[in-house]
Nucleic acid binder design. Sequence first.
DNA 1: CGAGGGTTTGAAGTGCATCAAATAGTGTGG
DNA 2: CCACACTATTTGATGCACTTCAAACCCTCG
Lengths: 246, 246
Amino acid sequence: MDQKTKINKALRALPVLEGCPPEVFERFVEGSIVSVHDKGKILFLQDEPAERFYLLLSGWAKLFRETLDGAQAVVDVLSSGDLFGETAIFYENEYPFSAEIVERAELVSLPLALFKSEVEKNGAITLNTLHHLARHNRKQGREIEHLALQSAPQRIGCFLLRLFDQTQGGPVTIHLPYDKTLIAARLGMQPETFSRALKKLRTETDIDVAGSTVTIGDIGRLSAYSCGGCSSGFPCDDLEHANCRH
Amino acid sequence: MDQKTKINKALRALPVLEGCPPEVFERFVEGSIVSVHDKGKILFLQDEPAERFYLLLSGWAKLFRETLDGAQAVVDVLSSGDLFGETAIFYENEYPFSAEIVERAELVSLPLALFKSEVEKNGAITLNTLHHLARHNRKQGREIEHLALQSAPQRIGCFLLRLFDQTQGGPVTIHLPYDKTLIAARLGMQPETFSRALKKLRTETDIDVAGSTVTIGDIGRLSAYSCGGCSSGFPCDDLEHANCRH
DNA sequence: CGAGGGTTTGAAGTGCATCAAATAGTGTGG
DNA sequence: CCACACTATTTGATGCACTTCAAACCCTCG
């Protein structure tokens, strides 16, 4: 499959562009740039004027904010199919966070100006985008609640539960999507705390941990432990992969 | 001034409706209901199907989420000119938080269906709304960062700094907008912690506290203390009163 | 094998929560 | 105008959760 076809296909899978006429996709493909980056590559910095937005084809990226005294808050960790940097056009034309590749990634970047003009022109895209932003608001609201009210082990439990389809019953084995240090940062805790909290979770609920493989013996027990500290109850929506429909 | 004129005027001050033709305002006024509520009144609960959205004319309301085991996260505290509950239409048609009056308030409620149809019809409103949601995203992003990285005294300092126009120099005297218990909840801490953290702030920076009146002797010193734990630096945008232009 | 990063463990400290109680402030009816 | 009731705020004592610093361990990859 040639490069352009591949990009086109990736773009068609985006809910924000759902319902666009073919020529719009053509225009996006025209303006696209594909690149591959290794771990450590900074894509852009917070408050930088935003020119382009990104779509991950493979690999992992983290979005973060860095305080003046050097502390870092990981806002999100993204993978294949995820879109980021697109909100800049609706507010100040600056990125609201920095973005860094954390695992060798292939990505497509697209001009924000093009997106903006399409949004202004095409009602369907506009509504998709509204929905997209609203979903993101929900996700952030939940994030705030979790940070304010959940304990470290609860946050981990909650994170684990959102890694698989919660409507399935029975024991589940999952693979942690990225390394524990990063999960810890994503959940707003230190690596040491993560390690200890996971151990506590092992004694409190019946999960098994072997390296990066976690086996949940009893989903009900884990959710009873974790979801008590959340307003959404169990099962809860994913909200994570808002942009991909694989 | 008669009731309808008053509502019309309040609606015209809303940035989300900026640029609407007069007949749209008429329609909103037609569908509006004005009510006055005392402290303690619950306007709606999280996850309830959303029918109407609200505009505060006076008084105070708090938005919060409550976990299964009873803990409460205060998402925001709103006052005159603020709009809330409007995001429900873009996602699941349910309120993402509960709302309660915390100080006798007068408010206008409007049908969400009407707003939705206007958004779908009128490009100007749609773009306003996108901007509005994006701004809200920024605000939440900052909130997340603060919860994750700032200490209690820093959060208070940051809160104080956003109570007045930071571009002014010199000492400033401000009045806390609502009671300390609620501020504490808004900042994600216990009332006791708030009290002690404020006392610490008094020794670390040169602020004076007398009841609910706070005098900041040296803004630079306060911001040096507080803003180090934030990525935005000083001065920072308000982002708070996104909906009012008084 | 050895280097280097990820992960765990231990010991000690800090910050915030919790529980309990005192104090200040506010609005009430007498 | 005072006494009372009630709520907001502060203070003290104590405990737990998370962090910090230090070191060991483990795993992978050259």
